[in-house]
Write a protein that binds this DNA or RNA. Structure first.
Lengths: 242, 242
DNA sequence: ACCGTATCGGATGTCCCATGTCCTCCGGAC
DNA sequence: GTCCGGAGGACATGGGACATCCGATACGGT
């Protein structure tokens, strides 16, 4: 028996304790009314405050960092982080790649969710879209067409196009989520091989989407988006079918 | 030691190294063609294989566990995990609570995303809904009405109702995502105080949704859902406005 | 022969210590 | 006033020791 060491509350599983530790840290942030950008106590101070060892604490800290709750700057300190979905992307990318070895189920489900979001929200976005934002979207289309004409891949430009479509909604959470989906798709795309797709046709598809948006044709925009996603699904199925 | 002893590749930031380590672990899983449920090498084996210390490795391992990539069982081993979004929920709950101290921005954005998903997908769900599934939905409504009549809160039943609405789509990713949103909302709800809402009215609202779904009225179902979310938004604004 | 219990081995959990690395800040030199 | 370099603080990494937990095997009672 340990000599009056401390309360060994080992009655609960280690998993629960670690989760509790993470919650404790988050509670501490909320209690002290820290805001995004504020500094947290140092590791040693947290060790004392929470009554755990530095390693155990660091494991929780790393998790919170991955969750986008805190930001750790080597040699300086830890801070409450701004919104961040990087970690979610990594997890989804892994799941998507794992699913590709089977029937691509998760990858296809991901496309479904993305389609629901984009097709469902394009109408709302069009309602509040300004002329400047519309111009930025067209600029993205033009960039895609230029790249397509020179035979270069334009993942970057396409991502930009989709982002700008929904920027008017002013919903960072949504943009983050779509950004994550995009990163996952991009990774999966590079996984299933160099595209045998027609870049020019793909650019034209995006031009169609823009045209519908510019014309205020909500149903048309939604339909064009749906067609786009059908193409993505087809590609995934082909890759898995092999 | 094996290879990487003499090159402490500190030329990249520590953050990048940790991310790389996580990627390495995931790559290792994919390379060895491990599937959900399969065991990973032990910590010591991974230390040797990846050329890092046990502490460093464990920090990455904990992150992967939080991301739902792996499952760690104390005293037994580590395994490739089935889909799991618990961690994402924790991160979002924290963000939501943090935002409530200001203007509830993130909380409201979360509702917007959820509305886009539910209102946008209800039509598709109705297309493939079977009679059994429809009956299950009605059962959930009945349970809500019973609880409302006796004055009890019915978060549980309401959550069940929404889950069953989209179960026909057979999209686990979507259900997970909605489940996460629901948990966040539930936590925030308990944060902003005991509801001053009329349970009976809320149950009636869900009954309306069911009626529209049962009648095959897609537009009506979507509209009822939108009304429901308007109520949620109003509640959040009231809580923040105080 | 069967079954519950006891022990064992392996794996993870927790912690401490030592050292390396990075960042910011401050003070001196130009 | 500006720039550069040292000092100090804080996080990063690695190793070791011990505690805890779980599954499996071996033992002894029935």
């Amino acid at each position: 028996m340990p000599p009056a060491n401390m309360v060994p509350p080992a009655r609960f599983s280690a998993q629960a304790r670690l989760r509790a530790l993470q919650s404790d840290i988050m509670e501490l942030i909320l209690e002290r009314e820290l805001e995004a950008g504020d500094a947290l106590p140092t590791e040693n101070e947290l060790c004392v405050a929470l009554g755990v060892g530095r390693n155990t604490l660091r494991e929780s800290l790393k998790v919170l960092q991955a969750l986008g709750v805190i930001e750790i700057r080597h040699g300086f300190g830890m801070f409450v982080a701004p919104s961040n979905f990087e970690a979610l992307a990594d997890g989804l990318i892994f799941r998507g790649r794992l699913s590709l070895r089977h029937h691509g189920l998760e990858a296809l489900q991901l496309v479904d969710v993305r389609q629901a979001l984009e097709s469902g929200l394009i109408g709302s976005a069009m309602d509040v879209m300004t002329a400047e934002e519309l111009a930025a979207i067209e600029a993205a289309v033009v960039r895609m067409e230029e790249l397509a004409a020179s035979g270069e891949a334009f993942m970057e430009a396409a991502s930009d196009f989709h982002s700008r479509l929904f920027a008017p909604l002013n919903n960072e959470l949504l943009l983050n989520l779509l950004g994550v989906f995009w990163r996952v798709y991009r990774k999966i795309h590079s996984e299933i091989g160099p595209d045998g797709e027609d870049l020019v046709a793909l650019a034209a598809l995006h031009r169609n989407i823009f045209t519908a948006v510019a014309a205020g044709d909500k149903a048309g925009a939604s339909e064009q988006l749906t067609r786009h996603f059908d193409g993505i699904r087809r590609r995934i199925r082909e890759a898995v079918g092999e």
